[in-house]
Design a protein around this nucleic acid. Structure first.
Lengths: 132, 132
DNA sequence: CACTTGTTTAGAATCATTATAAACTACATA
DNA sequence: TATGTAGTTTATAATGATTCTAAACAAGTG
């Protein structure tokens, strides 16, 4: 299985559940956005056995910590994650409550002129809200 | 009272509670960021009577709808609001979990090159995450 | 195989937020 | 000033996402 090494190299044991979650998350042509609930549904549809919700939370957080997933900063009652961990941005359609990718090349370079003492910039994320 | 007209003009009745919340929110030199809990504390410290938590939620949402407050898009277990409704951005200090204003002039112009059919841009918000 | 440590799990607990519905109030109109 | 009504406030219950718990289980090492 192609994810066994990836997990081992990250210090995560390649359990059945983690491997199955990897398949659901990463065995797709396109990257995508999801909430834990949506992922839970997707898992139910794609695999036969049940994976506990607690495990899905644990795994998503573990993957995020390892850099395989990114949280998307947006105000919603549910947390959104992104399987696309490259540097990019998002449209958020306020009416449909849907996220749309905005590639880095679709946004001109962003220049942060202010500096904060003793801190360095980890990421710069742009959220473009859309209305009709 | 200076907020009576402001509220009436927005179609909001100037109740005692709303006027007191206006004082706590807007009678300050500087704009600030807050969560509902923090605002609740501030209200407790600054006024004598009690305002129900439900009223604080209602009022903050009413003020947001009227454009007197802005939600800050960030992933946190609590929702952050901003009394500064001008177009500006934020640093987020991951270690201290604190927001810092980033004036529009501190960020170079942002060019969104991609268009979405039938949608127009309502806002462009930049979140700069800081680490040590 | 045996041991240790990491992982999964169901269910309980937590906590922010929203809903409910009864009491109350602003304010227009008589 | 009194009255009606629509908007507000309130305490409390309900909701729902997320985290915690602690027991059962599985992976990896020797």
């Amino acid at each position: 299985m192609k994810y066994i090494e990836k997990l081992r190299n990250s210090g995560l044991r390649p359990t059945k559940q983690r491997l199955q979650i990897c398949e659901v998350l990463f065995d797709t042509e396109k990257t995508f956005h999801f909430t834990i609930n949506e992922l839970n549904q997707k898992i139910k549809n794609q695999i036969n056995n049940k994976i506990s919700l607690a495990t899905i939370y644990n795994t998503v957080h573990a993957f995020e910590k390892k850099g395989y997933l990114k949280q998307i900063p947006i105000n919603s009652n549910q947390t959104y994650f992104d399987t696309n961990v490259s540097h990019h941005h998002h449209f958020y359609d306020l009416k449909d409550e849907k996220l749309i990718d905005l590639e880095n090349s679709d946004v001109g370079p962003i220049n942060i002129l202010k500096k904060i003492n003793g801190k360095k910039i980890k990421s710069v994320e742009v959220l473009v809200k859309l209305e009709d």
